[in-house]
Amino acid sequence: MTTAAEDAPLSGLQAASDLLRALSSPVRIGIVRELAAGSRRVHELVEALGVSQPLVSQHLRVLRASRIVTTRRDAREIEYSLLDEHVAHIVLDAIKHTRE
């Protein structure tokens, strides 16, 4: 008997690998953790993470290209939010797991 994971086509495994690669940075994990609580603007992420604005913007580009976050323009600022709440569960579970 095989498991569902063993039956997954390689393309599905590649997509999962790409998702994990996109999350493979402490800053990106921190961004996802913050966005799990709701939408944030760049300056809010900078403040919460204690890193520079250019660094946050660089990591947001990676997350956006990977279709993990989406944007909404609010006047002159851009608000970021998670495209899929499942990603938040992955990140939050990983953080919880490392603390146990």
Rank of each mutant, 00 (worst) to 15 (best):
E6W: 01
L60A: 03
R72N: 10
L55N: 13
T3Y: 06
Q14P: 00
R21P: 00
V51L: 03
V51E: 11
D93W: 00
A88N: 03
R40L: 10
S39P: 09
L49D: 00
A37W: 02
E79K: 05
H86C: 05
R76Q: 14
R33P: 00
E47W: 02
D84M: 04
H86G: 11
I90P: 06
Q53L: 05
R28A: 06
G12H: 08
E85R: 12
P9S: 02
Q58E: 15
L20M: 14
R28M: 10
V46Q: 05
D7S: 13
L19G: 06
G30H: 05
I68K: 01
L35C: 03
A4W: 09
H59A: 01
E6C: 00
L23V: 11
V62G: 04
I31G: 09
A36C: 07
P9L: 02
P26T: 03
E77Q: 14
L20W: 06
R61N: 12
A48W: 00
H59Q: 15
R67D: 15
D93Q: 07
G38S: 06
P26M: 12
I95R: 11
H97D: 13
S17V: 08
D93R: 11
E79F: 00
A75M: 08
T98I: 06
R67W: 10
M1D: 03
G30S: 09
T98E: 15
E34M: 02
L45G: 08
V56Y: 09
R40S: 10
V62T: 15
V91Q: 03
L49I: 11
Q58N: 13
A4Y: 07
Y80N: 02
S57D: 11
V46S: 04
R72H: 12
L55E: 14
H86K: 15
V56Q: 05
R73C: 00
G50E: 07
R99V: 12
S52M: 06
G38Q: 10
R21W: 09
R73M: 11
A5G: 02
P54D: 09
R21I: 15
S25N: 10
A22T: 10
L45C: 08
T71F: 00
A94C: 02
A15D: 13
E34K: 04
E85V: 11
D18P: 04
E47I: 01
T98H: 13
R41N: 02
G50W: 06
S52Q: 05
S39T: 02
T98D: 12
S39A: 15
L45I: 07
L82F: 06
L35W: 01
R67M: 11
P54A: 08
I68R: 08
S17A: 13
A48Q: 04
A75F: 11
I29R: 15
G50H: 05
G50M: 04
E100Q: 13
S66F: 09
L63H: 01
V87A: 04
A8P: 00
S25M: 05
E6S: 11
L63I: 11
L19W: 06
T3D: 08
S52R: 05
L55W: 07
E85D: 14
D74M: 06
S24M: 05
R76P: 06
H43S: 12
I29D: 07
D93Y: 06
R33K: 11
A37D: 12
A75H: 08
